[in-house]
Nucleic acid binder design. Structure first.
Lengths: 178, 178
DNA sequence: CTGCATCTACCTATCAGTTGGTAGGTATTG
DNA sequence: CAATACCTACCAACTGATAGGTAGATGCAG
């Protein structure tokens, strides 16, 4: 793993824990064992780092999406939920884009563009899946599921109660997958 | 309006815009026209301020919830959605508890307790409404609606597109209100 | 009604610590 | 020789928080 990747790894962990504003170059430097000036060598400014962070996150997510078999609707939806479920570690992290999205108003625009793209990618994947299986209101339902999963993560994280996320996920997909 | 209320008002505006971490006592002091040391007079520490903030927000929200007529299901759900819709001002603010919830992992525990209570209050109100109207899976559906609205706000805010929120809200309540 | 005490709501001044970012140096590699 | 990947040292700005001061209102004993 290159130093650049190690920095991104550490940054993702921190942002998903405490938010973008509360993550500092010095924290990252300590995490990966170099000095903060050297972090600036790899990512000149904080917006640069933020953009790289979301871009990488979205790419990794996309790869996992592409691995999901879309033949069985219910199984595909379960696998989709599974990706979000994996992102939720109580007291440790939620989806990177849930954090970035909540902070969006105060964030650099290049970061917001990437976060928006992440949501759009998820919505598009779902919409295709639902359309392919003849589900009505595919576009709206896709938006609903993405929103419910992101929101469910936030509520569950605040309440330190995984069951809330699972309940929300189940309720969101039950109606379309029956 | 007392100075304490003016501070809370300014703080709410800032947190809902840029997040709790990015709001400073000096910003608030400037907003209300006093010095930062005087803000500390009213709210000794930042966690104190955060707790007061969420508590006040939840109280105001509760008052509005209590004003909603629960006789007609669809009308009541629309009114509920309306409260969230009002909280979403693109490029300016989202629900205070969406921000606090997304930042939860790095926030003082007394703040998280209040945020959790806000979500629970909303879920309880919805669950009562749904149960009263004979809706199945009232508890899970209540959680779904709250999560979808909070998540929908975040996605819409990131995309600067109100229609996403409206679509999510409509999709969330359509199934139960038909 | 007077006079002293206390309280409220601010103030100035200051603190140590952290922040993003830069200038300029150095050792290693191709 | 020059690019890569670090380093030390520094900067101005900002952070939450504290100490200690003050003007004005309120309370209350003589």
């Amino acid at each position: 793993m290159t130093m650049k990747e190690k920095i991104l790894e550490a940054a993702e962990k921190r942002v998903r824990g405490v938010g973008f504003a509360e993550m500092s170059f010095r924290d990252l430097a300590r995490d990966v064992g170099i000095k903060s000036a050297s972090v600036h060598y790899h990512f000149p400014t904080k917006p640069d780092l933020g953009e790289a962070l979301v871009t990488r996150y979205a790419e990794q997510f996309k790869e996992e999406l592409e691995r999901i078999d879309q033949i069985e609707l219910r199984a595909a939806l379960d696998a989709f939920v599974g990706l979000y479920s994996k992102a939720l570690v109580l007291g440790e992290s939620i989806c990177l884009c849930a954090v970035m999205g909540a902070e969006a108003i105060g964030l650099p625009e290049n970061v917001n563009v990437r976060t928006k793209a992440f949501f759009e990618m998820n919505k598009a994947w779902l919409e295709t899946l639902l359309t392919e299986h003849g589900v009505e209101h595919a576009a709206e339902t896709a938006n609903l599921i993405v929103a419910a999963l992101e929101g469910g993560m936030i509520v569950a994280s605040t309440s330190k109660n995984r069951a809330i996320f699972e309940q929300v996920a189940e309720a969101a997909i039950r109606r379309v997958a029956n």
